[in-house]
Design a protein around this nucleic acid. Structure first.
Length: 475
RNA sequence: GCCCCCAUGGUCUAGAGGUUAGGACACAGCCCUUUCAAGGCUAUAACUCGGGUUCGAGUCCCGAUGGGGGCACCA
């Protein structure tokens, strides 16, 4: 039975790297008919953001990632929030101390130079408290100093593990420091909590970012000290910005929620993110969540970091939009329509679906429908359509009365009538259509051609705009 | 500073010793066409470098260079 987990800390939003980690963990579990678990890593009290839990729930729901066990979905292995598991960590920390694999450290924070203040970190040095005898430790304990618990890294040797992505990794124990397991506030560090929880929650496959690659040996030493089985590891390469810099909220890079607000479909974002670091092994790029579950294979995750390309996301978003059921697209699109246009919104949706790349493009794309833009007569010139100022004026003069008389006002009738007119008068179809389309949109390009716009705008508005166009040509 | 990891067009990637190095995005051109888009076609563009191993290396080994990550009472 595969059991994977997504273990975010509550920061208030879901960044792209997190989304991919969650997605892969979900895909791996679902691919193997296993269980996907949500666990909240809120062990840093100073960093908790109040509404962050909701953000995690919303983000996952939006992405279509559903968990089988989590804070609000008990699976018998909870609680699934680390701040509610403090007694558990305490118990296991004491067990480790009893086994000699950890020790109390009485050094105060101020005793040690701030790591961040140093230009370069020195080699690992052993903590003095490591060498305290049991009696000395007990004496200090009763002296009222609140200690932390540190892991006791073995003196020599090295520790290895196998990662599904990176292969065998070996690190000398001399490179590993006696990291803090239990903080003086009684909370565990990530380094301790992840081991205890992954074991207790029976996680079989640990999926996380590659920033944990070099500390994984420390976790394995912990598993070994407890006599626990070490899980399978899948470390993921980083996602970078297109310029090679790190993706960061601070630098203005959008989070998952930001992208959705920017008009990207969650399913397109999920599809795109799945492909950053993973490849199905063929040329396929369009995937629904169900497709991804079927195709996903952890052994096809790449090792090198990938750059997030907005251009490609935009293209893929367009693919997803075009693939939508017209009714579903209309539902999504109508939120971007003006309230009182009086136009047939479903018709608009049919016209724009194929042309929309992002939902947020819609307002700008259809603004001309409710408000004819200012434009100059030069717009009536178009080489490709063989339209000139003179031909356009001629066409409009002839076509206005023609359309006035037209009984049936729909795309097909309009197109037939105008095409006939062009043929009868020796015009290229485009030469007739161009000035009409231009008058109706006031734009060099529009979603829909002359007759589609005429159909949409209705007879009255169409004629009004054609007259305006003709006036521009005559003045 | 020490340790770990990575390296195919601008970007995402396929490639598991013998390929005209394949696809996608972006870009340019052409076709289609009632403008644009979509679609179709075409073009430009890549194995970081140096040594090995091998009949043969993008693929294996070593080194260099470049990039990234880690070395917190953060995760």
């Amino acid at each position: 039975m595969f059991r994977t987990r997504f273990a975010p800390s509550p920061t208030g939003y879901m960044h792209i790297g997190n989304l991919r980690t969650a997605l892969y963990a979900y895909l791996l579990a679902k691919k193997h008919k296993g269980v996907f678990i949500l666990r909240i890593e809120d062990t840093d009290q100073s960093r908790n953001v109040p509404a962050a839990l909701a953000a995690i729930y919303n983000g996952l729901a939006l992405a279509g990632i559903t968990y089988d066990e989590g804070p609000d979905k008990d699976g018998g292995k909870g609680p699934y929030v680390q701040s509610q598991r403090l007694p558990i960590y305490k118990k296991y920390a004491e067990e480790l101390i009893a086994k000699g694999a950890a020790y109390y450290c009485f050094c105060q924070k101020e005793d040690k130079p701030e790591a961040e203040d140093q230009p370069a970190h020195p080699d690992v040095t052993r903590d003095p408290c490591r060498f305290l005898t049991e009696a000395e430790a007990r004496a200090r304990l009763s002296g009222g100093v609140i200690p932390v618990v540190r892991q006791r890294i073995p003196e020599g040797g090295s520790t290895s593990f196998d990662d599904h992505v990176y292969g065998r990794i070996t690190i000398d124990n001399s490179q590993l420091d006696d990291q803090v397991l239990l903080k003086s506030d009684g909370f565990p560090t990530y380094n301790f909590a992840n081991v205890v929880d992954d074991h207790l929650m029976e996680i079989t496959h640990v999926i996380r970012g590659q920033e944990y690659l070099s500390s994984t040996p420390k976790y394995n030493l912990l598993y070994q000290a407890f006599g626990w089985q070490i899980p399978e590891y899948i470390h993921l390469p980083l996602i970078l910005r297109e310029d090679g810099a790190k993706l960061s909220k601070r630098a203005g890079d959008p989070s998952f929620e930001d992208l959705v607000n920017m008009g990207y479909l969650p399913e397109a974002i999920v599809n795109y993110v799945a492909l950053l670091g993973w490849s199905p092994g063929n040329d396929r790029e369009f995937f629904t969540m169900q497709d991804l579950i079927e195709a996903f294979d952890m052994d096809r995750i790449g090792k090198s970091s990938a750059a997030f390309s907005m251009d490609k996301l935009t293209w893929l978003n367009g693919e997803h939009i075009r693939a939508m059921d017209p009714a579903a697209f209309h539902q999504a699109a109508r939120k971007y329509y003006p309230k009182d246009s009086g136009l047939d919104e479903e018709k608009i949706s049919r016209l724009i679906q194929i042309r929309v790349e992002k939902l947020t493009d819609i307002p700008g794309m259809i603004r001309f429908l409710s408000e004819l833009p200012e434009y100059g007569p030069e717009l009536f010139e178009n080489q490709k359509s063989k339209a000139t100022l003179a031909s356009s004026a001629e066409v409009l003069r002839a076509v206005i009365p023609l359309l006035q008389k037209l009984e049936k006002w729909d795309n097909e009738s309009l197109f037939a009538a105008l095409k006939d007119f062009a043929a009868a008068n020796g015009y290229k179809t485009g030469t007739v259509m161009w000035p009409i389309r231009t008058s109706l949109s006031g734009l060099p390009a529009s979603p829909g051609g002359a007759t589609e716009l005429a159909d949409l705008l209705g007879k009255e508005e169409t004629l009004r705009r054609l007259v305006i166009g003709l006036q521009k040509l005559e003045s």
